[in-house]
Amino acid sequence: MLDDRARMEAAKKEKVEQILAEFQLQEEDLKKVMRRMQKEMDRGLRLETHEEASVKMLPTYVRSTPEGSEVGDFLSLDLGGTNFRVMLVKVGEGEEGQWSVKTKHQMYSIPEDAMTGTAEMLFDYISECISDFLDKHQMKHKKLPLGFTFSFPVRHEDIDKGILLNWTKGFKASGAEGNNVVGLLRDAIKRRGDFEMDVVAMVNDTVATMISCYYEDHQCEVGMIVGTGCNACYMEEMQNVELVEGDEGRMCVNTEWGAFGDSGELDEFLLEYDRLVDESSANPGQQLYEKLIGGKYMGELVRLVLLRLVDENLLFHGEASEQLRTRGAFETRFVSQVESDTGDRKQIYNILSTLGLRPSTTDCDIVRRACESVSTRAAHMCSAGLAGVINRMRESRSEDVMRITVGVDGSVYKLHPSFKERFHASVRRLTPSCEITFIESEEGSGRGAALVSAVACKKACMLGQ
């Protein structure tokens, strides 16, 4: 009897593995994704193909990295998701002549009506938060230079001027797309009239992360975010950046690689679950690469896999709870928690219980395998993109072996128990001629924006502006 049951459990697990095998990517698959990513990057950089390229390769006008001589107080704003952060950054000489960066910050959550109302409502709310922060720190009387981390696709015309191309991540505030974001912020500050600010720089969160990590390690020339969304930036040779005049030196390019796949480059790798996630998203047909990796989508992918296993009578005796059938019910943090389970399955059992399920031991094991399959594919897909960037940098610099540091931020990278190990191992397999160091950014977005502002202020002083 026991043997029969054991055989049935083994057969069930084997069927589960057959279904989950769809998520496995072979090294040849990853090399294919990497080569296609490089081709799209090239198209994004070139003037004649930029418009139709899915990977936009947006110039950021960040050319210099901090040298350690900029000092002063800077205000930093960070808008990239449902939370908005205001930070005071003091850049100065530390002990023994070292450079020191001290920060104080406060988080504000953005109400739904500000995210989806008008641009005026959104930026009025942001300036209200700045006003509140300055009151708390008794700094209303000071006109501070301000660095703005704005983590949406922007076409820069200068370091302090950028046109919002399109909202992502659930934002829909009308009247912002096609307009200068810094102008919208300046107008809102003017409307309030109770404080003055000098907006000197606007950067993407990947750029802010790279600059913040450069402060720790001067070989950091790539910034990457794996959180709600997924994106990367890197220092490109100016001669390859056709959208900006000049051939000397390097400029940081914001790849906006989340949109890779929007022209069909990933079609052969998309599964039924991916198509369902895409169809029910706020932007169907867009940001397809990001939807395979980002935390906004990972939990939902797992939920759809679990429903398939229920329908195949391989999980929960073929019956799903009402909660499990509800879109968004299986949160991405559950994926991390399930994979963090120590082996007694308590954590998995508790999560499934909150979803109205009474799982068996085998159910718990199957749910864990589903989570591992989805998150491992995410790590491997992400590795193909980064390997594409790094191999490109090595080739354009004609280096036999390139040493490089990548600064990384984002909740999936930082909080998932195995993502970074799987990701690092896969990147290294795909970049055999590179020695890569990964560092995690601390308060990256805010500190990085302030350091970019410090560079901009120093330049302005040198130019006598």
Rank of each mutant, 00 (worst) to 15 (best):
E9A: 06
G385L: 13
R7T: 15
R345C: 14
H50G: 03
R327K: 15
C233D: 02
F123A: 03
R5E: 14
N350W: 06
W257T: 02
G343Y: 02
T228D: 09
Y349R: 06
L146W: 15
A425G: 08
S321C: 14
F419V: 01
L292Q: 06
E216L: 04
V374E: 01
V207Y: 02
D194W: 07
V207H: 02
L243G: 10
E339N: 02
Q98S: 06
K31C: 05
Q26F: 09
E27C: 02
S131W: 06
Q18E: 13
S441V: 07
M87A: 07
C382F: 02
F84N: 13
A188I: 07
D341S: 07
M238A: 02
D42P: 01
C364N: 04
R345D: 15
F150M: 13
L146Y: 08
L355E: 03
D73Q: 03
D341N: 03
D262Y: 11
A53R: 02
M8A: 12
F23K: 01
G81K: 11
A387W: 00
M393Q: 02
E399I: 11
K291M: 06
R5S: 13
A320I: 12
S151F: 07
W99V: 11
P66H: 10
L430I: 08
E435P: 05
V91C: 15
D274I: 00
G44Y: 00
G81C: 14
R368Y: 13
Q239E: 09
M462V: 05
T206M: 01
D262K: 09
K459E: 06
M197Q: 11
V427T: 12
F148A: 13
E70T: 15
F150I: 07
E242Q: 04
Q347N: 11
V241T: 03
N254P: 01
N83K: 07
V406D: 01
T255H: 01
D278E: 03
I436H: 01
D247V: 10
L58P: 00
S445L: 13
A208D: 14
A11N: 06
M298D: 11
T209L: 08
G94N: 03
D267N: 09
E112S: 08
Y215H: 04
E70N: 15
K13I: 14
N83G: 12
Q26T: 14
S127I: 01
I366L: 12
L357W: 10
M393L: 11
L301F: 12
R63S: 14
A379S: 13
A259W: 14
D365S: 06
P284F: 12
R392H: 13
E399C: 13
H416D: 10
K13S: 12
G175H: 09
D400R: 10
M393D: 00
V89L: 08
K31L: 07
E28A: 08
G388F: 01
L309Y: 00
M41S: 01
F195W: 14
D205H: 11
E67R: 07
S280G: 13
Q337L: 12
S353V: 07
N83L: 10
V207A: 05
E196A: 08
D198W: 03
E48A: 09
F269V: 11
R369N: 08
G448N: 10
A53M: 05
A173P: 07
A176G: 09
T65A: 07
S441N: 06
L357F: 14
K90R: 09
D78G: 12
E40D: 14
V199E: 14
S418W: 14
T65G: 11
L77W: 10
P359T: 08
S340P: 01
Q347T: 15
K190V: 13
A282I: 08
C220M: 02
A6W: 06
D3C: 05
Q337H: 13
V182F: 13
T255I: 04
E245W: 05
S76F: 07
E290H: 12
R394V: 09
E70V: 06
I189S: 11
G410L: 11
L30A: 14
E279C: 15
G183E: 13
G343C: 05
E40A: 08
D160P: 03
E27W: 04
I163E: 15
M238Y: 11
L79F: 04
K102Y: 09
R250T: 06
M381T: 05
E443N: 07
T118H: 05
A232Q: 00
A119N: 11
G249F: 02
F269R: 01
F195G: 12
S373K: 13
M238K: 03
V253F: 00
D160G: 13
P417L: 04
V71H: 03
A282K: 10
I126N: 01
T437L: 08
L30H: 05
S340N: 04
K143W: 07
S109Q: 12
K291W: 01
L75W: 03
T228A: 13
E177M: 13
M115L: 14
T209E: 04
L47P: 03
T431L: 04
A379H: 00
D198G: 09
L355A: 02
K420N: 10
P284D: 01
A454D: 13
V277T: 06
E67D: 09
D311R: 04
K12C: 14
G464N: 02
D4Y: 01
R63K: 10
A454M: 12
K31D: 15
S445R: 14
L88G: 06
P145N: 09
S281G: 08
N231I: 07
P111D: 09
R303Y: 00
A320H: 14
L309A: 04
V302W: 00
A114Q: 11
L164F: 12
L324W: 00
G285E: 13
L386A: 09
L352E: 00
T168W: 14
L270S: 12
V182M: 06
A21K: 07
E399G: 08
G356F: 03
H156R: 13
G246N: 03
K104F: 06
E22N: 10
L288M: 15
T431P: 00
D247F: 05
E196R: 10
L122Y: 15
R186D: 06
G343L: 05
I163F: 14
V277L: 15
T49V: 04
K161Q: 06
T437Y: 07
S281M: 06
H105R: 13
H380K: 14
F133H: 03
E300M: 00
R5Q: 15
D113S: 13
I390K: 01
E9M: 10
C230P: 01
Y125G: 02
D341P: 01
R308L: 02
N283Y: 11
R192Q: 06
T103Y: 07
Q239V: 10
C213Q: 00
G343M: 10
Y234S: 03
G147D: 02
S353P: 04
K420G: 09
E52L: 11
E248S: 13
N391L: 10
E443T: 01
A379P: 00
R275T: 08
E319F: 10
T60C: 14
M37H: 00
D274Q: 00
A11Q: 13
M37F: 06
R155N: 07
K12D: 15
G170R: 07
M87K: 12
H50W: 09
A6V: 13
I189E: 02
N204Q: 09
N254H: 10
M251E: 01
F148M: 06
S174Q: 06
S69E: 03
F269L: 13
E319W: 09
M210R: 01
Q106A: 08
Y413G: 01
L270G: 01
E245Y: 08
A11D: 15
R46S: 12
G385S: 11
Q18D: 15
N231R: 05
S131M: 02
K31S: 08
E27A: 15
L185T: 07
D278S: 04
S398M: 03
T206L: 03
A460V: 11
K161A: 09
I130R: 00
R403T: 06
G178K: 14
N283T: 13
T65Q: 13
T255Q: 08
H380R: 11
G92C: 10
G388H: 03
A320V: 12
G285A: 10
E52Y: 10
M393Y: 03
G261V: 01
Q106G: 08
L270V: 15
G183H: 13
I293D: 01
G294W: 03
D363C: 08
R155K: 11
D42A: 10
K296F: 14
V374I: 13
S64N: 15
E322I: 07
R358A: 11
G80S: 14
S353Q: 04
L79A: 08
V302A: 09
G446L: 15
F23R: 00
G407W: 03
A282C: 04
E248H: 10
Y349Q: 11
K56L: 09
A425C: 13
Y349G: 10
F152S: 15
P145V: 08
L2Y: 13
W99M: 09
D73S: 03
H137Y: 13
L357Q: 06
Q287V: 09
D262T: 14
